[in-house]
């Protein structure tokens, strides 16, 4: 999603016109929101993942985060479903497989890098940005710490450094944008994954690849690519052998991009800004006039 100031102003004028004609909400939808055609993405194959958590380790190393306290082999971390936080930009959770209880399913959680991210649309200082490469990145230098992006994210991803008094920042997976992607590299987790459960590539190719894999193994895979259409599409996608609901995926997100939710309201604001004062002044003039008239007539009567 690319909304800069010029586009915004352009759309404001569009709203002005359409507001008069009578359609308001779909103005923005007419703009091209298909994003960046060559954007990259990730595909996590949950059948392959075996929960070694090397991705967590690699991620921490790539982002200079404190290392794990317990060794990776310690399975006690799986007892609780974790979410990414300021020390873990990605976490792997274990879910019991109801079909085969001996073989649990592991799910890696991190920022899904939505094509039209709600966090980006929610940020009031534009600290979050979707890059042409597909990464949703964060600029600490302008963040004021309102944490509205955390409210907005449908996946509960952005985390905050609540313990940092003076320079707290949002922490979330950034696709290794600065440290790797810019230099033509591959994100740390995808590179280290021993079974290559995470495939990194162009999003369009990944969808083909995933579709092909599902088509070839219909008995193994659920026929759904999570993230292909969810909230308007995400750069990070999943395929799985067990129903996504069992793995804590929210299946009720719909396919409408989150920024659409506030677009209608935002488009009404400039209208009110312009028409409101005029209307108020008009009413005032009207009431004043009526008052004077009634005063005059009272005087006449008396």
């Amino acid at each position: 999603m690319k909304i800069d100031r010029r586009d915004f102003l352009k759309s404001l004028s569009a709203i002005g016109v359409s507001g008069i004609i009578g359609s308001s909400e779909k103005v923005f939808a007419s703009e091209d929101l298909s994003g960046y055609p060559d954007r990259l993405g990730m595909l996590t194959d949950l059948i392959l993942c075996n929960g070694c958590r090397l991705c967590e380790k690699a991620c921490k190393e790539a982002h200079n985060l404190p290392p794990h306290k317990k060794p990776l082999e310690d399975e006690s971390v799986f007892e609780k479903i974790r979410r990414p936080d300021d020390k873990f930009l990605t976490v792997v959770n274990r879910y019991t497989n109801t079909d085969n209880e001996e073989e649990p399913v592991y799910r890696k959680v991190q920022c899904n890098h939505c094509d039209e991210p709600s966090c980006v649309s929610a940020c009031l200082v534009g600290a979050l940005k979707k890059t042409p490469e597909g990464a949703v990145i964060y600029n600490e230098d302008v963040c004021i710490g309102c944490r509205y992006c955390m409210i907005a994210c449908p996946f509960y991803i952005p985390a905050y450094e609540f313990d940092d008094p003076l320079s707290p920042a949002i922490k979330k997976c950034d696709f290794c944008y600065d440290v790797r992607i810019k230099k033509g590299g591959i994100p740390a987790c995808a590179e280290i994954c021993p079974v290559e459960a995470i495939t990194f590539g162009k999003r369009s190719q990944l969808i083909e690849f995933a579709t092909e894999r599902i088509r070839k193994n219909p008995e193994k895979y659920i026929d759904h690519i999570y993230g292909e259409h969810e909230v308007g599409g995400t750069s990070w996608m999943y395929i799985s052998g067990v129903p996504f609901e069992q793995l804590g995926f929210d299946m009720n997100l719909g396919i409408k991009p989150s920024p659409e939710l506030t677009r209608g309201f935002l488009s009404a604001v400039p209208l009110v800004m312009i028409i409101g004062p005029a209307l108020l002044a008009g009413i005032r003039a009207f009431t004043k006039n009526r008052e004077q008239n009634s005063e005059k007539s009272e005087q006449k009567e008396s």
Binding site: R5, V120, G126, I144, A169
Partner: peptide
């Protein structure tokens, strides 16, 4: 706020025009 001294940022420095929070 995490960094309260940046409260004027949305007014003068960095604009996130798609945000309802910006409006607020």
């Amino acid at each position: 706020l995490g960094r309260p001294w940046r409260l004027p940022y949305p007014m003068f420095y960095s604009f996130g025009v798609t945000s309802v929070m910006f409006l607020v």
